[in-house]
């Protein structure tokens, strides 16, 4: 069971999402909030597994709420950014602040539900192909160059990072590379450690920022394709 908190300033979006998501037995809506301030309070009180966070809201916006929650060590939930358009400037900022991925409000509801499950499992990342472009457009200068990433990681870890950037989960990477899931897990942990990042999403942002993952992700089986194939 995944507990959800829905944050959006528009009542019609909140009621639509919560009503529509109520059909999935593994999801439970534990609360709704209309701005960043109430979102932070509700998240601390209700301890949801996943927060669906709109970015632009009156008063306190989704960015600052995301930052406060991801900085809060006692909060263990995952934050997914809700956005109307995938070209949104704020999406990258939210991801950089620690959101695990983002959902388009216009996605079919089954796909939104899938993305929530995937993100809460934490074994793969959730965002459309456009992330590479968004990072290219809005990203800060890379903390590491592509060459530095290549120098730091073993060839095997590089391959794993590319698969992670393509949106694959551990089991899928294991199958593709003909190794065990445990091997993949330890390699992913090693990548996160070496890149000094919190989670897979941050690792992928580094990979895109540096250009390390840009070329391969396009031709690979991406998170987008994977999400749609699961429906």
């Amino acid at each position: 069971m995944i507990d959800l908190l829905i944050v959006d300033d528009e009542p019609l979006i909140r009621s639509g999402l919560s009503g529509a998501l109520s059909q999935f037995p593994h999801l439970r809506i534990v609360g709704e909030a209309e701005d960043g301030e109430t979102a932070v309070t509700a998240a601390r009180q209700l301890r949801p597994d996943v927060v669906l966070m709109d970015v632009r809201m009156p008063g306190r916006d989704g960015l600052s709420a995301t930052k406060e929650l991801t900085d809060d060590r006692s909060f263990s939930g995952t934050i997914l950014v809700l956005t109307t358009f995938d070209s949104d400037d704020y999406v990258y900022q939210a991801m950089a602040l620690g959101a695990r991925g983002f959902l388009l409000k216009r996605w079919p509801i089954a796909r939104i539900a899938d993305a929530i499950s995937i993100a809460s499992a934490g074994e793969s990342v959730v965002f459309p192909d456009s992330l590479a472009r968004i990072v290219a457009d809005h990203g800060s200068p890379p903390k590491r160059s592509s060459g530095e990433i290549e120098a730091e990681l073993t060839p095997r870890e590089q391959v794993v990072l590319k698969q992670v950037a393509a949106g694959l989960n551990n089991a899928e990477i294991a199958e593709r590379l003909h190794v065990t899931v445990d091997t993949v897990k330890s390699q992913v942990s090693s990548v996160l450690l070496k890149l000094n990042v919190r989670d897979r999403t941050q690792a992928v942002i580094r990979a895109f920022e540096s250009g390390f993952a840009a070329a391969e992700s396009g031709s690979d089986r991406s998170a987008e394709a994977r999400l749609s194939s699961r429906r």
Binding site: L12, G16, S18, G19, A20, S22, T84, R106
Partner: peptide
């Protein structure tokens, strides 16, 4: 934006129709 809201509300209606007909009706009116 309206299409996004309409689809979400339609999904809500579909999800709720067997559970709470009134809720589903609200969704459809929206």
């Amino acid at each position: 934006h309206a299409l996004t809201i309409a689809s979400l509300q339609a999904e809500r209606g579909r999800a709720r129709i067997d559970v709470d007909a009134g809720d589903a009706k609200d969704a459809l009116s929206t």
